[in-house]
Nucleic acid binder design. Structure first.
Length: 705
DNA sequence: ATAGGGTTAG
């Protein structure tokens, strides 16, 4: 039979506890007798409110306690009697749970000296410093902690060199609850009482500041150390490396890191992670790798956080191709990926359009039972739109809707509409638009741009106009991308219907309207055209200049206006919208066509061929090799990439270029073959035959970048 | 388990 004491803590009424001999508690009492307040605190600690109430009741000589006593057999014990002394648990584990329960009560009690001392009455006067430290160390309530500290100070009356330990432990309650001001106040109190802070005081304050996102405060406190006779040690140094790294103070972070190395203070993986993150934020992946390497050389094992930080840096610096190696190393070092690892990998792969890798991360997350976020779903779907995988997109979309953890948002619908639009699925795109609206989302400019593209491709010009009206009705201002789409639609539309589209373009952008009118009406007068076109290009944001140039050139080409196409290309070169299209080295002359639309690329090719002929005519020597780089990319809205369009175009020209077997996206020709081909073409046959070459291609793809 | 320490994504 076990006995227990129900605390009856009013100092006013009695210094006695009563012992219940009933086995009323739900917890089991196994090997040891549970003789005292411990049991009451165990049962109280289950419900802190109840605990508080009971303490308060007890303090007012609880009538409830009396009624309880009716149902149980209780023995009153005077806590000061010799019997009470042995009621405190003797075994370490019993004492541990006893003190832990006391601390729980303290954390949830009213912050007052009286409540605190009521709870701690069970310890009576023979409190050991160890017990005091144990309890203070576990305190999480910064309101009560100072009262607990005060209580122990009164009972223990420690010397100031012992008192600092109690203060340091109390400071932790402020750190846990992110109350930095409170911690500073306690520090002041410490000084007022003549207690000298030590390194532990400072490292606690410094880390509190960091956790409260106050790295400047951390620096401030670090700088105060010497004035209190404290010199930095391994712990404060490592905290400060992180604090300086947090503020992107590279010099100070490195200088303290250097000091730690010089003193042979070991820094751990998380400190290294903060250094790696510092360089990651600055976009300096090379330095990230250097720190990572040093870390390993110093024998510090990278953790999942280290690898996640490294992957995060890769994501920021867009070095996607390195992600796979980091991940491989992580796995081979036995570090298990977590949610952040997968989320970061997925963002990297989806952003870089590594289709297979992104999809396999997605599958792995699903397999591990990890919930995808809306953002991750959207990035995946955005990639599907970019690389044109319809089935996957639909499957992922369905999975998202049935996941129960997140729902499609405006971006989700936008991606799906783009997926369908890019693949000519008109009714599916329309269906998705309806679903979007039914889900409470208004169509955005992105959605409407996709639909213009979709209807344009399907040659439903009236629907293109309908979308344009919808855009205006929604109060959306058409942007340059939207205009580019309208231009692109024009390249696919018979001349008879041009009027419908030019009306839209004029309403969308007056300057563009007049440039287009020049082209469509075939007006002469170069000066005016160039002037209007350059005014237009100067009036728009830098990042949309190239897409617009590309679209304008495509339109010129589709209108059989190669000279206009060259004008726009020239203008683009002059305004540095296109850069380094041609390059010449001793061994190779090259034409770089990446990021050009088909029309712009073909125009640039003819200009280049023309330049080569001129070089020959002026007896200039050609290099051993000539090459055209088309890249391997395929655009969203076209079925083919530039490379395949070029392959057939070069064949039509009888140009002896051949795809380089070892360099994807390159077409090469030797000096000799080039010479004889150029000579056979003759000087008369130059850019003028461009039209017939290009107009054969029914669709001139739009290059958006 | 009894005064020091946290870090990672968008």
């Amino acid at each position: 039979m076990a006995s227990c004491i129900c605390a009856s803590h009013s100092s006013l009424f009695h210094d006695r506890h009563y012992v219940s001999t009933s086995i009323s508690s739900s917890f089991s009492l196994r090997n040891f007798k549970f003789p005292n307040a411990a049991s009451s605190h165990k049962s109280l600690s289950l419900h802190s409110k109840a605990s508080q109430a009971l303490h308060q009741d007890a303090a007012s000589h609880d009538p409830d306690a009396n009624s309880l006593s009716l149902s149980k057999t209780r023995i009153w014990v005077n806590p000061n009697s010799p019997r009470a002394k042995h009621l405190q648990p003797k075994s370490p584990s019993a004492r541990y749970s006893y003190l832990a329960r006391l601390t729980e009560s303290l954390n949830s009690c009213t912050p007052s000296a009286q409540h605190v001392s009521t709870i701690l009455k069970g310890l009576r006067d023979n409190v050991s410093e160890r017990d005091a430290v144990f309890i203070l160390d576990k305190m999480t309530n910064p309101e009560t902690a100072p009262f607990v500290l005060g209580h122990f100070r009164d009972k223990i009356k420690p010397s100031t060199d012992k008192e600092v330990i109690l203060y340091n432990a109390t400071l932790k309650a402020f750190r846990k609850s992110r109350d930095f001001e409170g911690a500073e106040k306690l520090f002041d109190e410490m000084l007022q009482r003549g207690v000298k802070p030590d390194n532990i005081t400072f490292s606690t304050l410094i880390n509190s500041a960091r956790m409260c996102a106050l790295p400047d405060k951390a620096v401030e406190w670090f700088k105060k150390m010497p004035s209190f006779g404290c010199e930095p040690d391994a712990m404060t140094c490592s905290a400060m490396v992180s604090a300086y790294a947090q503020t992107n103070n590279v010099d100070m972070a490195l200088s303290l890191y250097g000091r730690a190395k010089a003193e042979k203070w070991s820094l751990d993986a998380s400190t290294f992670s903060t250094l790696i993150k510092m360089y990651g934020v600055l976009g300096n992946y090379v330095e990230c790798l250097r720190i990572f390497g040093e870390m390993k050389v110093l024998g510090v094992k990278p953790t999942v956080v280290t690898y996640n930080t490294l992957l995060g840096s890769l994501f920021r610096s867009k070095k996607s191709w390195q992600a796979k190696n980091v991940y491989k190393e992580m796995i081979s070092n036995g570090v298990s990926p977590d949610f952040i690892t997968y989320a970061t990998l997925l963002r990297i792969y989806a952003g870089a359009q590594y289709r297979e890798d992104a999809l396999s991360v997605y599958k792995e997350m699903k397999g591990n039972g990890m919930d995808m976020t809306v953002d991750l779903y959207n990035r995946l779907l955005d990639m599907c739109a970019d690389v044109g995988c319809i089935e996957e997109a639909v499957e992922i979309f369905e999975d998202m809707k049935s996941s129960g953890t997140c729902q499609p948002d405006s971006l989700t619908f936008s991606s799906l509409i783009t997926v369908y639009s890019c693949n000519g699925k008109v009714s599916e795109a329309e269906g998705m638009l309806n679903e979007m609206i039914q889900s409470g989302f208004q169509p955005t400019i992105y959605v409407l741009t996709s639909l213009v593209q979709c209807y344009g491709r399907a040659k439903q010009t009236d629907d293109v106009v309908k979308i344009f009206k919808q855009l205006l009705d929604l109060g959306i201002v058409p942007d340059v991308y939207f205009c580019c789409c309208l231009l692109n639609v024009m390249t696919q539309t018979p001349k008879e219907e041009f009027g419908k589209l030019t009306d839209c373009i004029e309403k969308a952008n007056t300057r563009l309207g007049s440039v287009v009118r020049y082209l469509v009406e075939g007006q002469e007068g170069d000066g005016d055209f160039r002037k209007e076109a350059s005014e237009l290009l100067n009036s728009i944001d830098f990042k949309v200049k190239k897409p617009l140039c590309n679209c304008l050139i495509d339109l010129c080409v589709s209108l059989n206006a190669p000279n206009r196409a060259r004008d726009v290309l020239d203008l683009g070169l002059m305004l540095e919208i296109y850069k380094n299209i041609q390059s010449r080295s001793e061994t190779q002359w090259s034409l770089h066509l990446k990021k050009l639309s088909v029309g712009a690329a073909i125009t640039a090719l003819h200009v280049w061929i023309n330049d080569l002929s001129k070089a020959l005519e002026s007896w200039e020597d050609l290099p051993p090799l000539l090459g055209v780089n088309t890249g391997q990319g395929k655009h969203k809205y076209s079925d083919k990439g530039l490379a395949s369009v070029f392959e057939s175009h070069l064949r039509e020209l009888n140009a002896p270029f051949h795809q380089a077997p070892d360099k994807a996206g390159w077409f090469l020709v030797t000096k000799e073959a080039a010479k004889s081909w150029l000579e056979s073409r003759g000087s008369a046959e130059t850019i003028d035959d461009l039209n017939s070459q290009v107009s054969g291609a029914s669709t001139v793809a739009l290059q958006y970048q």
